[in-house]
């Protein structure tokens, strides 16, 4: 899967947990303050991503993510590692 396709999938998952559409999401947006997520839903997001893309992401790594860009980076790193 190319990077743009991977990011598209992740943005689509983020939009399912936010009231914004995938094309309205920006890398610098904060999951909590800008997208209205709480600590539970931001962890849920990474869990959904791990399941959807069959990635092994640890809880510690997921807990450290605070932005849309951070989510995309973390997923890209794990995807490359697993490829």
């Amino acid at each position: 899967m190319i990077r743009a396709e991977l990011e598209g999938k992740v943005l689509s998952l983020i939009s399912q947990l936010s009231t914004l559409k995938a094309h309205e999401l920006r890398r610098e947006q904060r999951l909590r303050e800008d997208l209205g997520m709480d600590s539970v839903s931001s962890m849920e997001l990474l869990s959904m991503v791990a399941e959807e893309l069959d990635l092994d992401i640890s809880v510690e790594d997921a807990a450290g993510i605070t932005t849309v860009g951070g989510t995309l980076e973390l997923v890209a790193q794990h995807y490359e590692r697993s490829a």
Binding site: E44, M48, A50, D56, I57, S58, A62
Partner: peptide
Amino acid sequence: LHEEQGVRVVR
């Protein structure tokens, strides 16, 4: 739980 499921345990 960490070892067996990683972040998937959240669900």
